[in-house]
Nucleic acid binder design. Sequence first.
DNA 1: TATGAATGAGACTTCATTCAT
DNA 2: CATGAATGAAGTCTCATTCAT
Lengths: 206, 206, 206, 206
Amino acid sequence: MTTKKHQSLKPRKIPSQSRAEQTVAAILEAAACILETKGLDGLNTNLVAQRAGVSIGSLYQYFPGKDALIVALSQRERAVFFAEAEGALNEPTGQRGLKHLIAASVRQQLRRPTLARLLDFEENRPSIAKELAPFITAMTELIRQLLDHEDIPPQPSIETAAGDIIAIVRAIVDAAGERGEVDRTALELRVSRALFGYLGIVGRQP
Amino acid sequence: MTTKKHQSLKPRKIPSQSRAEQTVAAILEAAACILETKGLDGLNTNLVAQRAGVSIGSLYQYFPGKDALIVALSQRERAVFFAEAEGALNEPTGQRGLKHLIAASVRQQLRRPTLARLLDFEENRPSIAKELAPFITAMTELIRQLLDHEDIPPQPSIETAAGDIIAIVRAIVDAAGERGEVDRTALELRVSRALFGYLGIVGRQP
Amino acid sequence: MTTKKHQSLKPRKIPSQSRAEQTVAAILEAAACILETKGLDGLNTNLVAQRAGVSIGSLYQYFPGKDALIVALSQRERAVFFAEAEGALNEPTGQRGLKHLIAASVRQQLRRPTLARLLDFEENRPSIAKELAPFITAMTELIRQLLDHEDIPPQPSIETAAGDIIAIVRAIVDAAGERGEVDRTALELRVSRALFGYLGIVGRQP
Amino acid sequence: MTTKKHQSLKPRKIPSQSRAEQTVAAILEAAACILETKGLDGLNTNLVAQRAGVSIGSLYQYFPGKDALIVALSQRERAVFFAEAEGALNEPTGQRGLKHLIAASVRQQLRRPTLARLLDFEENRPSIAKELAPFITAMTELIRQLLDHEDIPPQPSIETAAGDIIAIVRAIVDAAGERGEVDRTALELRVSRALFGYLGIVGRQP
DNA sequence: TATGAATGAGACTTCATTCAT
DNA sequence: CATGAATGAAGTCTCATTCAT
């Protein structure tokens, strides 16, 4: 069987000893590495275990299956990203908040471009998406609050707008990653233009 | 590994008899169907052959493997799309041209949303992308000509802009497809705003 | 099925028109070529047909199966060889006869070393061997007559001796072919020594 | 094609647990059995695994493919043979050494005639031969030392002589196996005659 | 808990052979 | 007779997952 259906994708145990935490971290990092170097097709549980210096049995001790690995990896990356993105709420205006969000996205992407792109894709698979719903909800909520500022024109559907915004940022930033761009500022500017245009914000962007 | 490394992705033979053409068409359509209903993981050569009502041997007669199937499918869809998109060059202004392009993209996406989204992703995989390079080149050239009109502000890099434009259109349109949107007009409008914003075109869009 | 069991290995029809003869010759030569360049694993009926410039259907018109191809090829080579070897019977002494036989073997092998070696092997497969029995019988008979001369010490078993002689000649000559040797004379000398030693012929060989 | 091109033929992992050693042994013995009863065409990985009482996955855990199986089998047989053959170096004279070598060859062949013959052939296939080069080298060296004794006439090329000797012994011994001979002594005598004749040793062999 | 050998469903692919045109 | 599209049995090989030690 390729993949067992309908099994939990949550980590099996919350590692309480630091030894276990290290194991989990090693496994995730191994998975990340392989994803970056060999792509999705190159990712398999046996290899991950080997690269992590752990037995395959141990891997299954911490992750109930392959998908759980990807979910955990996404969550790891998302957690970092979200911690940065949340700062957007402290910005005084909606536009400043958006810029903050964009900057966080760009930074996230440029840290590990290949990995980010691959995860972006995997997150679309229904089985994975389900587990990442909380993040989507949180992002949507965050964007909703940003759009709520009075310096942002009202949108017909906040839901739709939030989804579009996430998609647009991702698209430009992934495309840049693919091209190997490294200039953060230029990239942020391009994203801003698209986003501000989308939202109907006229006027000068810095 | 799912797929053998480094094998040709080009069709093995061009069908010379009309019976063969039918076979090829049936195979491609079956692949499209499966992609739509069971996703990428559900796509395998045996199932495709079965659904196409041909033997597995026949499939391999025309396609050297699973990836070749995806390539051929992309090319089929791209050909349809490009035929429509090319009309953009007949528009009098750059902005009208872009609208034409957007409309074509939206139409393409709304025809078979799931399929379109899946192919959009697959096309990013390096091995697939290589085979689709001609299409990318053609699209870039088309966009270059559109941006060349004087009603479009000059862009720092045409290449980058072209890539970004393709990515933005795709992103919004795919996101819409995922949500199950069907309102062509509303969708076109949102894409226009993002694109025109990106390009620095100020002023009222309809 | 890899190969149908129990089917005739004889050519299906004796080609009466010269057109058919040419076809058969082309097929055999194509098979020989492929055997030489891609080895046994590279030999398959479709490829042979293609290389012969004939449709696969036509190939089966003349040969009832893959093994029949190999049998026919062996027979073609054997016929040439045997025509030369038979001259041994005209030699005045047994030793001269043997030399004649050796010379014929060496010449045969050096013409197409790789092909000869491959066929030597294939001829051991029971299904092939059956069809080549007449040749073995003829060879055994030929050798029996040579050994019957009074300048050859009597052998305990003519049958065994004949088999051994064929095997020894083949072994040395194939080994030489493998090494890429081209010096006919040196090779003949070595074979003579082994054979004459085997037969208990003492004294000077030229 | 029967076998994937250009993959390693070396065992994938050396069994560290004794359970694994048993598995490997069972697989090799099953392969040997099948080779003896159904020939080369009858050898396939599924059947080997089944006969060995292990899963196909286990087989591939230790052997990357069918050819690796043959290589390992050859090495197993060669190791046994070489251990016996090496004793030839302890003999006082070259001729005694050769007899020792011949006796070892005959014994090896008569143990499992069919298997020996099949392996002899397979070892000629380039891909297999490569892996067995060490054995060939060792044999050549052994023969070189034997021929170095003063009771053996000097040979124009030791390399060639060594190759020929191996080939001659093999040929006669394989032919005997094919005929179902069981008389060790008679066989050894015939080989001796051929070899001594080849080397130019005159005089009475027992 | 950790280990890693074992499992086996299932995907991929070839190629000898047939048969409708 | 020739053609070449179609067939599908038979084989190869992988990898997610389990389980005895």
